[in-house]
Design a protein around this nucleic acid. Structure first.
Lengths: 204, 204
DNA sequence: ATCGGATGGAACGGTATCGTATCGACTAGG
DNA sequence: CCTAGTCGATACGATACCGTTCCATCCGAT
């Protein structure tokens, strides 16, 4: 995870020294998420974030010009991008694998609290909406690969409605975990995967 | 929609008079939701709510003891309960009907902004979690009826995993509309319904 | 008509956060 | 060694909300 800071008004010292400490930047991100999960996006106080990171407020305002800039870079730095899924041999096995990985992500309490807040905020501000769609497209990649492989195997037709299929795969697990707030057992995830697979086949 | 106010410390005047105006109570609910949608749950200011309803803050504090009590009664008064779905003759037709109704609900900008906030808040406070599960169980009713009819028709086995089935039905549409923030066309909803139906059959 | 009591509206003190500015201390390139 | 620039910390005025208190008004019972 690279150092990322908004260089908009940073002089970047042609003659040399004094670069913002990357470790502190990361600590600020982390503190921001902790506050976010605890109080909700709208109630995040930059003062508390700084204190939590063991820093002064100036450390924040020196790096980012506004709260939303801070939030945006923090979310991007979080890097929710899921690893691409390797080929497990069949569509159903691939879907099962995908759901188990998604389950791991959604078990993190931070994620469970922050994701819905992010979606709500996306409906409010265009800025967050852009951020949300960017995350969504990152998230789309592994699922798209999974579908391509299934088409290559002949398990799904090339005429498949990809967009709809990509909705179908993660939605039930997301619903169960984020909307209902319950974590399904491994057996339930397996069952869910088989139902989702059948749904995909029916999309043809 | 009945008048609902917290009578916890309301004297209710055995000798007669002075009842809080129901119209103002409703105006307060409405203003609360408007503020919620606009700023996010955590940032709702009771002062602005009162002002928006054309009332004083005392009008709020006289009715409810705390912000969360206010929020809870407001959500319950909102009455998101969807009407029970009449029998359309087949499982797929019932599912299609259900999804179209859900689409109507999720098109309301207020709902789209408030629901994810509610889920995030449910992960934070036990109070909101209780509220969320109560709403969820209300929401479950029409879907459960739909499944029962399908079992009665013989389209689904009695051994069906109802909980999983109830996740499967609304999830893809919720994902598309709330998580991705896009409203699917009527044709897409129809397609979604057929895929969901296939998934339900595969749950057997 | 009168009177008790709750009502709506406004004002109050207290607290928290904002975004900015400033301080001495420290660090690293030149 | 020197200088530029970050570091934590603190102070600042401004703003917004909180939760309470006070007051004039209005309504219903007697």
């Amino acid at each position: 995870m690279e150092r990322k800071c908004s260089d908009q008004k940073k002089k970047r010292t042609p003659s040399g020294a004094a670069v913002p400490r990357a470790e502190l930047t990361d600590a600020l991100y982390q503190a921001f998420f902790a506050e976010w999960a605890e109080k909700g996006f709208a109630a995040v106080s930059l003062e508390r974030v700084a204190a939590r990171a063991g820093a002064g407020k100036a450390a924040i305002y020196r790096r980012w010009s506004s709260r939303s800039a801070f939030a945006a870079e923090a979310v991007e730095a979080l890097g929710l991008r899921m690893a691409v899924i390797e080929d497990r041999g069949s569509l159903e096995a691939d879907v099962t694998d995908f759901l188990f990985r998604l389950r791991v992500v959604l078990r993190h309490p931070l994620v469970r609290r922050i994701l819905p807040d992010l979606h709500a905020e996306a409906a409010r501000s265009p800025e967050m909406r852009g951020l949300n769609t960017r995350i969504a497209s990152q998230r789309r990649a592994p699922g798209a690969g999974l579908l391509e492989r299934a088409v290559a195997r002949g398990e799904l037709p090339a005429s498949l409605d990809t967009k709809l299929a990509l909705d179908l795969i993660p939605a039930p697990l997301y619903w169960r975990m984020v909307v209902l707030g319950a974590t399904p057992s491994r057996a339930e995830v397996t069952k869910m995967a088989s139902a989702v697979t059948a749904g995909l086949r029916a999309l043809a």
